[in-house]
Computed example of a mutant assay.
Amino acid sequence: MTALGFLYPGHAAEDDYPRIEQLLGSDIRVELVHTDIGEDARRADTLRGAGSPERLAAGLEELRLAGAEAVVWACTSGSFVHGWEGAHEQVRGLALAAGMPASSTSFGFVHALREIEVRRVAVGATYPDDIARLFADFLRAGGAEVTAVHGAGIATAAEAGAWGERELFALARAADSPDAEAVLLPNTALHTVAHIPALEKELGKPVLTANQVTAWQCLRLTDRRVNAPELGALFTREPVVQV
């Protein structure tokens, strides 16, 4: 049994995680602890505050007691808003406080792109334009080429959490560009897990979403590989054979 630990900001799309657990199989357990986000606003200052060391540390004891083997800060904007170096510092501090491997959703996107061997991407973000551009900058720092950025202008996690299938597909279509090899949909407040195969079929390319890559990143930290086609192309690649 492998226990995956997640620190999830507030309440929005956390019900994606029981679905992920179901799709991953019986020997994977998902442990999720909610963190305090303070003000629910997609601004750089409030997002930096949501991922402060004090707020993240508050949930770690519960994850340790649950037997988590790794922890991921399940927030995209609350990590990339610190910039490339600042986000590294954030997860280093989290790992030290947790006493286990740690990462964040933002780094999950970067590593997932390397996993599926994709460089050119389009971004469909629920965020305001200025926050969406910060995510694009983060991806570029990680080696990606961002061909298009579409921001939907949503100012709160609560609004994003209320989106349904229609809004999600409209966002993905608006973001896609012909030269993009994959479409990225950040924001762990957005319900996506039930729709990834359909999104990939419609767009004809891999779709990476925040809660999906968060789970994959935590599995990566525990050296687990799980074949789960219902979680999209990211979960269907064969392990690389080292010669």
Rank of each mutant, 00 (worst) to 15 (best):
E39Q: 12
I116W: 01
W216C: 02
E54W: 06
D130R: 05
A194I: 08
V226W: 04
R237V: 08
P239Q: 06
A189C: 06
D15N: 10
R43V: 10
L4E: 07
R224W: 06
Y127E: 08
V30K: 00
I37F: 10
D223Y: 00
C218Q: 05
D45T: 09
L24V: 02
A57H: 09
H150K: 11
E62F: 13
R120N: 00
V81Y: 14
A148L: 10
G164P: 12
R120A: 04
E159K: 00
R119Q: 01
A95K: 02
Y127R: 07
A58E: 11
V121M: 04
E165K: 15
A50S: 15
L221F: 03
S77A: 11
K201W: 15
Q212N: 04
N227C: 09
D16C: 09
E200Y: 15
S77M: 05
V149G: 06
G10F: 15
S26I: 07
I28N: 04
A12C: 14
A198R: 10
N227L: 09
P197A: 01
Q212A: 01
R19I: 14
H111V: 07
A189F: 08
G153A: 03
A175R: 06
E115M: 01
I28L: 07
T236I: 00
A122S: 12
H150P: 10
A155K: 01
A74Q: 05
E61G: 05
E21G: 00
P53T: 13
T2H: 04
F109C: 04
E61K: 08
R220D: 02
A152N: 09
S104R: 11
D179L: 14
G108Q: 02
P18T: 12
E230H: 06
E159M: 07
D16N: 12
F169W: 11
E165S: 13
G232R: 01
L185I: 13
A98V: 14
A170I: 07
A170G: 02
G51F: 15
V193Q: 02
D129R: 10
A141W: 08
L56A: 06
T236V: 08
R42K: 03
C75V: 14
L208Y: 14
H150M: 08
V243F: 11
V91W: 04
T2P: 01
L139R: 12
R133G: 07
V81M: 15
